[in-house]
């Protein structure tokens, strides 16, 4: 079952995706199918099963609080879409 279009539009907005009307329709169908597929899990009985917090059976992975070398400023800014001085430059954000 296709997802309501306004839901898809909202999710697309949150993900900063600009979808054409045709893409929106297609996305609504595909997402609907995915959700339906995942919904099959609802049929399972999970009484008495501990919730899983992570797919790996691994806990308490820590590192020591020790300094490691950082990137140089030039290396850090190498991929910046725009640079001004030692800063990333981005389109003006006014709050």
């Amino acid at each position: 079952m296709a997802l309501p279009l306004e839901h898809v539009r909202w999710v697309a907005h949150l993900a900063r995706l600009d979808l054409t009307p045709a893409e929106l329709e297609a996305m609504a169908r595909d997402l609907g199918a995915i959700i339906e597929y995942v919904n099959q899990l609802q049929a399972l009985h999970t009484d008495g099963v501990e919730p899983l917090a992570h797919a790996l059976d691994l806990q308490n992975v820590f590192r020591a609080d020790e300094l490691a070398p950082s990137l140089t400023v030039d290396a850090a800014l190498a991929n910046a879409p725009a640079r001004r001085g030692d800063f990333y430059a981005v389109p003006a954000v006014l709050d």
Binding site: D65, E66, A68, S70, L71, T72, A76, G85, D86
Partner: peptide, 26 residues
């Protein structure tokens, strides 16, 4: 702490801009 939550970059106040970052930070 001396270092950040998820990487070994310094947390020191007042360092030159973008001098304490790494692939995790970025």
């Amino acid at each position: 702490t001396r270092t950040k939550l998820f990487c070994g970059c310094s947390t020191k106040f007042g360092l030159p801009p973008n001098s304490a970052t790494c692939p995790v930070c970025a």
